[in-house]
């Protein structure tokens, strides 16, 4: 049962990823991307990472992609499509790099085989289960986030704040031009 769902989600995720690249309108690309993100969330659920799945849908599919959609529609892209993917030397180089990366990754996965990623996988899983029982799903993620990684977490927040300030500065009309 789990395998069937995994294959289903994997096919949708990969198909969506291909669709993002090859579809002719930005809106279609965006919807394909939402399908990919939602399928990845489905795979998280199969791994019993419910919290991660919910956050994936909430943040990526529900907020960030909606903003993308908002911008696409505000700029009214998609009604006059012009191909911007031209096949030249650079795209060839791109394909080579992507192919090599994919090959290395595939090699890595094949080497691991069926034994799993870690020797002590079962013990880690048991400890995680106990922690989930103790603190709830959110607690297990929140505790290390706000203790061990709190500096990195706050720095990320600062980075986003800087980005927002930069966007405001860029979007603000120049007072020199006279127009609002």
């Amino acid at each position: 049962m789990t395998e069937i769902f995994f294959i289903l989600f994997a096919v949708v995720a990969l198909g969506g990823a291909v669709g993002v690249v090859i579809s002719r309108t930005p809106i279609a690309s965006l919807l394909f991307m939402v399908a990919t993100l939602a399928s990845v969330a489905g795979i998280y659920v199969l791994f019993e990472a419910h919290f991660l799945a919910a956050i994936q849908v909430l943040v990526y599919a529900g907020a960030i992609m909606v903003l993308f959609l908002f911008v696409i529609m505000l700029l009214n892209l998609g009604h006059d499509y012009r191909a911007d993917l031209r096949f030249g030397l650079w795209s060839l180089l791109g394909f080579v790099v992507v192919g090599l990366t994919f090959g290395v990754l595939a090699q890595g996965f094949l080497d691991v085989g069926d034994t799993g990623f870690r020797e002590d996988g079962a013990a880690v899983a048991a400890a995680l289960d106990a922690a989930v029982q103790e603190q709830g799903v959110a607690g297990v993620i929140a505790e290390p986030l706000f203790t061990d990684y709190v500096v990195a977490f706050e720095l990320m927040g600062l980075l986003l704040l800087v980005a927002i300030v930069a966007a405001v500065v860029l979007a603000k009309p120049r007072s020199r031009s006279g127009e609002s």
């Binding site: 419910h50 919290f51 919910a54 956050i55 849908v57 909430l58 599919a61 529900g62 907020a63 909606v66």
Partner: peptide, 12 residues
């Protein structure tokens, strides 16, 4: 186990 988050995620 994610209760309210499920509702927030889907309504988004």
């Amino acid at each position: 186990p994610i209760g309210i988050l499920y509702i927030l995620a889907l309504s988004s």
